[in-house]
Amino acid sequence: MSAPNFNRREMLTAGVLVGSAAALDATDRAQARSISGDVPWQEGQANKPDIAKPGTYLFLTAAEAACLDAALSRLIPKDELGPGAKEAGVTFFLDRQLAGPYGEASHWYMQGPWKKGEPTQGYQSRMTPAELYRAAIKAIDAHSGDKYSGKTFSQLTAAQQDEILKGLEKGDIDLKTVDAKSFFTMFLQNTMEGFFSDPLYGGNRDMVGWKLIGFPGARYDYRPYVKKHGQKLALEPVGITGRPAWKPA
C-alpha cells in the first residue's frame, strides 16, 4: 500500500469551510480568536501556555520511547559541546506534544478530498501526527528486525542507526504503512523544536539548547543593551517560567 497522500489545497482555498472547521474545533488553545468591543481582560486570568506536567509518559509506550530515545540521540547526540536531545528531555517533549492537540492535529484540516499533494504543500498525510509516530516507530523496528536478525532500532549500533535514518531521510526505505520521508521530516523538525523550545514544554531541559547556541531566552526588552556595541553580553538564558536566579538562595 502506498502512503495515503492527498491534496488539501482545494479545500484550503475554500475559506468558508476552513473557518467552519476551525469553529468546530473543541480545543481553542491553538486557535485564533475574533475580538470585538473591549479588549478582553479578567483579573486572575491569563492567556497562558500549557505547561507540560511532569510524570510518566502519556502517549508513548516504553518500547516506543526507547526507539525515539535512540533515534533522536543520533540527530542531536551528546558530545563535547554538551548534552544531546535525549538528555534535554526531547522524548518527554514529544510525548506531551503527541498526547495533546498537536498529536491530534486538532488545528489542521484533516478531511478529504484525498489527492496526492506536492512536496511544497507541506504535510500531506491522512494520519494525525500521533498516528504517524505510532505507525512509523512500529515500522522502523520491523525494518531493523528484518535487516538485523530481530533487533529493534534501539538495539542497533550507532552506525546501523545512522544508516536507517539516512534511508528514511532520502526515502530509500519503504516502511510500507507510512511514508518514510514524511515521518523523518516531521521527526527532525519536532526534535529541533523539543531541543530549542521553552523548557516549559518539557524539552530543552536546563535550557541546554539555548546555552549551546547562546540564545538569551524569553526576554521582553533589550533596551538596556542597545548601546553596548561590540561587547559580549553573556546573558543568562531565561525561560518563560524563569531561571535559577529567580529563586532566593
Partner: peptide, 11 residues
C-alpha cells in the same frame, strides 16, 4: 484602558 497581565500561573 491599559492592563497588566496576571502572573499567578507563572510566578
Amino acid at each position: 484602558t491599559s492592563a497588566m497581565p496576571a502572573y499567578n500561573w507563572k510566578l
